[in-house]
């Protein structure tokens, strides 16, 4: 079947920090077929219309987490969103909210990569280290089920763009990092909860969240960070009151 070629208007935010003082918008007419993603639309612009447009992408199949952007105001992976769903309307593509713009649609993720992610210690902290020769840490399917969906996070940062609290105060640890905190806390092989608790208990930990829930709505991998935050609010509340019953109190 011959595919009918239609045309859609794509409006992109443009910003070059070397020459611009403020972002502006530029509109391109892009011919598309039914199977074309928004990312393919951007690639068409770069290849055929304007080679200076900058944006990140890699896998084209919603697993690398590189191509997140605001598509008509909604944080989405551009490879996971189709041009046909917006035709005959226009499409406006902007860099993810709440992050500094490096250039055009590319944001600066330094805050997440350097600050938020390391702060939750996103790795297994075993109770006792075990030599390689002693074999692997065993786990039942039921134990794995407790954290598995949190481990599906691809660090695409759509949830940070969706989170109004992160937008108001970027000191908030944020949805993906707290989901990863829960991913390791809930892992039967991990004994690092106490080390992650100080951050969770602080105003910039789980208590920075007011349960808007938009993070879970925009997550392309079904991670449900809002639920992770709420599980940690319960844990933090228990920790708050139970420390009065512990012989060594806050020290754990």
């Amino acid at each position: 079947m011959a595919e009918t070629l239609r045309t859609i208007e794509i409006e992109c935010l443009r910003f070059n920090p070397e020459s611009d003082t403020a972002p502006s918008y530029q509109t391109y007419s892009v011919p598309f077929t039914d199977d074309m993603s928004v990312l393919q639309g951007l690639q068409y612009i770069k290849d055929e219309l304007d080679g200076s447009l900058s944006f990140r992408w890699s896998c084209r199949m919603a697993i690398c987490g590189s191509c997140g952007s605001m598509i008509n105001g909604v944080p989405q992976l551009s490879c996971h969103t189709f041009l046909r769903d917006y035709h005959p309307g226009k499409l406006r593509i902007e860099p993810l909210n709440h992050f500094p713009i490096l250039r055009d649609l590319a944001i600066d993720q330094t805050d997440f990569v350097r600050n938020k992610l390391p702060a939750v210690k996103p790795y297994i902290i075993p109770k006792e280290s075990q030599a390689l020769a002693q074999g692997e840490f065993l786990q039942t399917p039921r134990e794995m089920h407790k954290y598995y969906h949190y481990s599906e996070c691809i660090n695409c940062l759509l949830c940070y763009a969706a989170c109004p609290q992160y937008g108001l105060d970027s000191k908030f640890t944020g949805p993906a990092a707290i989901a990863l905190m829960q991913r390791y806390n809930a892992d039967s092989r991990d004994a690092g909860r106490a080390q992650r608790m100080d951050l969770a208990n602080s105003d910039h930990g789980v208590w920075g969240c007011t349960l808007v829930g938009y993070c879970s709505e925009v997550c392309p991998k079904g991670v449900d960070p809002a639920h992770a935050v709420n599980q940690n609010k319960v844990a933090s509340t228990l920790d708050y009151f139970l420390r009065f019953l512990r012989p060594n109190g806050d020290k754990r």
Binding site: N201, S202, D203, H204, G205, S236, T237, Y240, D250
Partner: peptide, 15 residues
């Protein structure tokens, strides 16, 4: 890191 006093209010809120 300073412990938040939010759990007191959140517990009452939750109940």
């Amino acid at each position: 890191m300073k412990r938040s006093n939010a759990p007191v209010f959140w517990a009452l809120f939750g109940a």
